[in-house]
Amino acid sequence: MKLAIFGGIYNNYLALEAAIADARARGVDDFYCLGDLGAFGPHPDRVFPLLKEAGVVCIQGNYDDSIGNDLDDCQCGYTDPRDNHFAQISYEYTYRNTAPENRRWMRDLLTELRLEVDGIRFLLCHGSPRQTNEFLWDSTTSTHFLDKLARDHNADVVLATHTGIHWQRELSEGRRFVNVGVLGRPENDGSTNVWYTIIRTGNDLPKPTGSAPWDSTVNNTPIQIEFIPLAYNHERLAQEMQDEGLPEEFINTIRTGWWTTCLEVLPSRERRAGKW
């Protein structure tokens, strides 16, 4: 099987459109999205027809829970006042511009999804299997924590998003934790592209060589995890954000690839990789 897993979309319908086309061209069988459909970008309602037309199976992120249930904020989990200030601007914009039927649709999404593909047990969640808005960063999450998480939740592969930066860790007995990245904004690395993940499983895959970090077997089934950098019309997105009156700080991130907000929640290692 070949699966495409999308992380947070953050209203970036242009990246979503490009990701669906890219994944189709790569022969993907099924599409999944790990939630946070809104935030940051322009025109929230443009995301939903694309998801439905492509048959993307979505689970609920903290943003979708908030918008769907008319909450006061996005529950993104920031504690810094400046981070919360900007989060609130995009939350209010997104809430205001999301049609009631789309809000209802988000309200009813499941918070996790379990799949068994070629004998591999996948657990799809937003932040972590135990808390929707938990930040699991590469540099501040021990391997034995992830091992216990996967074991406790009876999963071979845990798929999450929420932090905005893709990474993966191989765990004991071939288990894995994978943060699939996000389509919503670039990864604070100075590149304007965004990321999604393709997972291949099954015996049609070449035998694992051990030379590539994503080659291994889970329950005797080969699995390959590939992070896909995706170029899209980011200039058009930036222009539309400008036309919608969204903050200059957000537009700057789309145009430069460097995060300008939500920085305080970053551990030092991830923070040092960025410009600000």
Binding site: N69, L71, T79, T132, F135, T140, V265
Partner: peptide, 15 residues
Amino acid sequence: GAICTNLSAAKSSTT
């Protein structure tokens, strides 16, 4: 709340 942990590990509840 969360007075001892770092911001990157802050626990924030979801409803």
